[in-house]
Lab assay of single mutants.
Amino acid sequence: PEDLERKVRELQKNGVSPEQIEKILRRDGVDEREVQELVKKVS
């Protein structure tokens, strides 16, 4: 979803590592495939 992507970009802009971003997304209940997609987009 659009807002998730925005969140991921925000986190990355704040210097959060892709690994941390993955953890955060998983903790928020984002589905694994979605997590991978989002992280791939920003890394």
Rank of each mutant, 00 (worst) to 15 (best):
S17F: 03
D3N: 10
L25E: 00
E37F: 07
V16E: 04
E19Q: 10
E5H: 09
E2R: 13
L4W: 11
L11Y: 07
E37I: 09
Q36W: 06
R26W: 04
D28M: 15
E2Q: 12
V35L: 14
K13I: 07
L25Y: 01
R33C: 10
S43W: 15
K40A: 12
R27D: 13
E37G: 05
V35F: 06
R9Q: 05
E2K: 12
E34H: 11
E37R: 15
P1W: 15
E22G: 07
Q20W: 08
L38F: 05
V42D: 03
D28F: 14
E2S: 14
V16F: 15
D3R: 08
V30H: 12
V8E: 00
P18C: 11
N14L: 14
G29R: 02
K41H: 08
K13E: 08
K23T: 11
G15S: 02
K13L: 11
L4A: 04
K40I: 06
I24V: 04
K23W: 11
V42I: 14
G15Q: 02
V42N: 05
S43P: 05
D28N: 11
Q36E: 09
N14R: 14
V30I: 11
K7G: 01
E19V: 06
V30L: 14
Q12W: 15
D31Q: 06
K13A: 12
R27I: 06
E10R: 13
R33F: 08
K40V: 06
V39F: 07
R26C: 04
G29H: 02
L11G: 00
R9Y: 08
G29V: 02
E32A: 08
D3F: 11
V39E: 01
S17R: 06
L11E: 00
E34A: 13
G15P: 00
K41T: 06
L11W: 13
R26M: 11
K7E: 03
E37A: 11
V16A: 11
P1F: 14
L4H: 04
V42T: 07
L25P: 00
R6S: 10
I21R: 01
L4P: 03
S43T: 13
V16H: 13
E19W: 08
D31E: 08
L38Y: 05
L4R: 05
N14P: 00
E22D: 02
E5C: 08
L25H: 00
K40P: 03
V39C: 11
S17V: 03
R27Y: 05
V8K: 01
I21T: 01
R9A: 06
E5I: 13
K13F: 07
R6C: 09
V8T: 01
L25T: 00
V39K: 03
R26E: 03
K41W: 11
V39W: 04
R26D: 01
L38H: 03
G15D: 02
K41Y: 06
Q36Y: 06
I24W: 05
D28C: 15
V8G: 00
V8C: 04
D31M: 05
Q12F: 15
R9L: 08
I21S: 00
R33L: 08
V8H: 01
L25V: 01
E10P: 00
S43G: 08
N14A: 13
R9I: 06
K23R: 12
P1V: 12
E10G: 05
E10I: 12
I24F: 04
G29C: 08
I24R: 03
L25A: 00
V8S: 01
S17A: 08
D31S: 14
E22V: 15
K13S: 08
I24K: 02
I21V: 03
E32R: 03
K13V: 05
E22P: 02
D3V: 09
L4V: 06
R26Y: 05
